[in-house]
Amino acid sequence: MQNTDKPMTRWQRFKDNDIVWSFFHSPGAVIAATIATVVILACIFAPLIAPFDPFDPAQISLWDGKLPPAWVDGGQPQYLLGTDNQGRDMLSTILYGGRLSILVGLAAVCLGMVLGVTLGVVSGYVGGVTDAVIMRIADVQLTIPGILLAILINGIGRVVLPLDMRDEFAVYVVVLAIGLTDWPQFARVTRGATLVEANKEYVQAARIIGLPGWLIMLRHILPNTLRPVLVIATIGLALAIIAEATLSFLGQGIPPTTPSLGTLIRVGNEYLFSGLWWITFFPAIALVVLVFAVNLLGDWMRDALNPKLR
């Protein structure tokens, strides 16, 4: 009963939050979060951390091309993970590439989430024909596998752009392609949650005092549907990063001039047969670690937010 006497400080309330509690009491989550944070921070601050700037021609020399990692015979200490075919330092390229991969993944998930949540809340709250139309579209889209759809949208997007703008806007096209493919999951979950919330008394109360529908959706229903959305968003982030890497690996995504992790793996793959394993190996490891950490976080979050399992 002591809490009622004295209002809790923000920090105490934060500590008492069930999600935060569960976080600090599962070692897997803490490890995953640490790895994810380190990798994501390293990538975001790539310009500050990276020993070289892979986009600065003055720092690249072809003479230093195809050098193995520093600990292998023939490696040079300033290139810790070796260099690629153009003489770029692998470590720096990976950091910059990871940065692009994360940014594209985040942007794509945000696009899918905003689109899906909006349509989901509207669909669940308005109901009727609107609901039927939105959900049918989601159903149809779910029958076609995401990666195929992304390849298709991406291909169309590139064709629609004039030739000289294709490389420049490739990143946006990829974001659009992935974002447009993953909205149905968000829409379905949000719609389900909205249907539950819309019948509760606080929503009826808001309706009675005459609030407009959009305000009820935005201020009252939306915040209460966000928990499951958070879980899907985390798993969606991992999937979006994989989707971007896959598109780029297939040569459909981000061009080699500003490589993402997928582009780096694609370029490196051509040198695999000549024994230059590090050009593919390190970007691939970076991608796997990144995706694995995000997946672990998602797994933990699903358990933590599911009251049945607590």
Binding site: L287, V288, N295
Partner: peptide, 13 residues
């Protein structure tokens, strides 16, 4: 769990 995190093309490579 690792299998779920590995993109198809990386397994292939």
């Amino acid at each position: 769990l690792i299998g779920v995190s590995l993109p198809t093309f990386i397994i292939g490579i």
